[in-house]
Simulated assay, not measured.
Amino acid sequence: MHICYITNEFPKPGFSHGGVGTFIATIGKALVLEGVQVSVVGMNYVDEEETANINGIAVYRLTAKKLKGLQWFFNTRSIENKVQEIHKSTPIDIVETADMGLTFIGKLQGVKYVIRMHGGHHFFAESEQRQVEIWKGWQEKRSYKRADAFIAVSEYVKSHTEKFLTLKPRPITIINNPINIELFQPIENLVIPYKLVFAGTVCEKKGIRQLIQAMPLIWKIFPSATLDIYGRDWYYPDGRSYIEYLKVHEFAILGDRKQQVVFKGAVDYDLLPSKYAEANVCVFPSHMETLGLVAPEAMCMEKPVIFTALGPGPEVITHLKTGLLVNPYSSEDIAEKIKWVFEYKDEAHALGLAARQEVLDRFSIQIIAEQNLNFYQDLKNK
């Protein structure tokens, strides 16, 4: 079997990437070990074309066109031409992309096209209570109409997407994102007391503003608590930095303890476990997620994890059994959950142990790879 993934986010050292890229790198490696041929096609991070073999995955990074207003057209053609070229050499069985990925891509006869629902425009428009943009909404509807099958990363993203977009009667399944069990192993003796660790894009919907607002409430009882924030910055349409916005509008409440809240920037994926290892507790109070990778990654390292009670949070964590769920809009609730971890050390440690077992049972790459492979095989045979 030959699977071709279309994404611009496949990880490259020295460049930040999103969860989709991490997912494809992880699942691709596992599928290769199962004897599947895996190709990845997308735009390069730099102004040149590159081909590489990474863990058995054939990665084709194409030169992005920069004609304002038309780059989407030319980039799509480049991807389509490369997929056709690969198919002529070694026939492709399945092409997979994210929510809008099939809008303009020409389809090859005999090849099945899958959309993996990582959370598209309609999904986030609803969750963020904003209007669907006409152009993006049209693109996503067209992309979904052209898909032969769907994989949703959570029940939540499936149920909320199908409010707006037609999925049936085409095949659809729910398969969680895998966690790299080998990478996210417990690391002893690195915990720094009262250290909080957040990882993810630094933007409003990740709940980082409320987390910062919770710090003065925590300091009333635990004055030595610190917060390390790992992740790339987010920028407003006019180019303003969200991190700079936080420093201007939120840091005043921190008083003379500003140095206890530190933006660490993006970190290479392979170094992320060492950052989680330092945490007394990992906190991810997202307003919205499709599933999220950071929570189960930290859980896999036996960390007590505080995750959002909204969206798919309850699909990932069972409150007070494998972690803590929090109202992400309430800095008071965030502070209370963090203080609970600090105060009830034995109970928090037990949460971490149970959390790792939960990830091993549900999110291991072997289990997820088998689920994906079975779905692909069934789809190919239809």
Rank of each mutant, 00 (worst) to 15 (best):
Lys29Gly: 06
Glu336Phe: 12
His87Asn: 14
Lys275Asp: 02
Met301Glu: 03
Asn177Cys: 08
Ile175Asp: 10
Glu80Ile: 11
Glu244Asn: 10
Cys300Ser: 13
Ile367Cys: 04
Met301Leu: 06
Pro223Leu: 15
Glu188Met: 11
Leu271Asn: 05
Met100Cys: 06
Ser143Gln: 03
Asn177Gln: 14
Tyr194Gly: 09
Leu271Val: 02
Lys145Ser: 14
Pro11Ser: 08
Ala147His: 04
His87Thr: 12
Gly19Glu: 04
Val191Pro: 07
Val153Ser: 04
Tyr194Lys: 11
Thr226Trp: 08
Ile3Phe: 02
Gly14Asp: 01
Thr318Trp: 02
Gly231Trp: 12
Lys321Ala: 13
Ile221Gln: 13
Thr290His: 03
Ala52His: 01
Glu155Cys: 14
Lys195Asp: 01
Phe104Lys: 09
Val326Gln: 11
Thr97His: 04
Val20Phe: 05
Phe15Met: 00
His160Phe: 05
Lys258Asn: 11
Gly21Pro: 02
Ala350Ser: 11
Leu325Gln: 06
Ile3Gln: 14
Leu227Gln: 08
Glu244Arg: 07
Ile218Cys: 12
Gln371Phe: 03
Glu155Gly: 12
Gly56Lys: 07
Thr7Val: 01
Val262Phe: 13
Asn189Leu: 06
Val41Ala: 00
Ile174Asp: 01
Ile368Asp: 05
Leu254Tyr: 15
Gln366Asn: 06
Phe342Val: 14
Trp72Arg: 05
Val197Gly: 12
Leu373Cys: 11
Glu80Asp: 15
Cys203Leu: 08
Tyr230Ala: 02
Lys65Ala: 02
Ile54Glu: 00
Thr322Gly: 14
Ile105Leu: 15
Val114Arg: 06
Tyr236Ser: 12
Leu108Trp: 05
Leu291Arg: 14
Thr51Cys: 00
Asp333Cys: 00
Glu347Asp: 10
Lys258His: 03
Thr308Gln: 13
Val202Thr: 12
Tyr236Val: 09
Ala348Gly: 15
Pro186Tyr: 07
Ala252Trp: 00
Ile3Tyr: 13
Lys158Leu: 10
Tyr242Asp: 12
Lys339Ser: 09
Gly28Leu: 00
Thr290Met: 02
Pro304Val: 11
Lys66Ile: 06
Trp72Val: 08
Ile221Thr: 14
Asp93Leu: 01
